[in-house]
Simulated scan of single mutants.
Amino acid sequence: MPQMMPMSWLSLFIMFSTTLILFATMNYYTMIPLTKTDKKKETSQKNLNWKW
């Protein structure tokens, strides 16, 4: 198996780093945040009368 010269390793590292950064930023900025427009859910409260 032939060894690769250092410039080739550097170019591979730069290529994979840029693709990682590119896909990470695309994934971050293409997500559409969902705004909550529905009414606030009312929680049922149970009144407990404690008898000591």
Rank of each mutant, 00 (worst) to 15 (best):
F16W: 07
L12K: 07
S8I: 05
I21W: 09
P2S: 04
E42S: 11
N47M: 10
P33Y: 01
F16V: 12
K46N: 06
K36V: 07
T37F: 12
L22Q: 11
I14S: 05
S44H: 09
L34G: 03
S17D: 01
K39I: 03
A24C: 04
M15A: 15
T43A: 11
S44E: 10
S11K: 10
T18I: 04
L20V: 04
T18S: 09
I21F: 12
N47G: 01
N27W: 02
T25E: 15
S44R: 09
K36P: 00
T37V: 07
Y28N: 09
K39R: 14
S17L: 09
P6N: 08
T30G: 09
L22P: 01
S8F: 02
L22R: 07
F13T: 06
W50P: 00
K46R: 10
I32S: 07
F23G: 02
K40M: 02
M4I: 06
I14L: 09
K40G: 00
K46F: 10
M4H: 06
L10P: 00
W9N: 08
W9E: 13
M31W: 12
F13G: 12
T35L: 13
P2A: 10
T25P: 01
K51V: 05
P33Q: 00
M1V: 13
P2L: 03
K39G: 06
L48D: 13
E42Y: 03
M1A: 13
P33I: 00
M5Q: 14
Q45V: 15
A24I: 01
T30L: 13
K46V: 13
N27V: 04
T30R: 15
T30S: 14
T37Q: 12
S44N: 04
P6C: 02
T37N: 15
L22W: 04
W52S: 12
P33M: 00
K41T: 06
S11Q: 11
F13S: 12
Q45G: 02
M7F: 14
L22N: 14
E42G: 06
K36N: 14
M15E: 11
L22V: 08
T37I: 11
T19P: 00
L20H: 05
A24S: 10
S17E: 04
K39F: 08
L22S: 14
L20I: 09
Q3L: 11
M31V: 15
W50A: 08
P6S: 04
F23W: 01
Y28F: 13
T18K: 02
K40Q: 01
N47F: 05
K41W: 00
M26G: 10
Q3E: 12
Y28E: 07
S44F: 05
K39M: 07
L12N: 07
S11A: 11
D38I: 02
W50L: 10
Q45K: 15
L34P: 01
Y29H: 09
T25S: 15
F23L: 07
Q45M: 08
P6D: 07
N27I: 03
W52V: 08
F13R: 05
W9K: 09
K41I: 07
T37S: 15
N27K: 12
P33K: 00
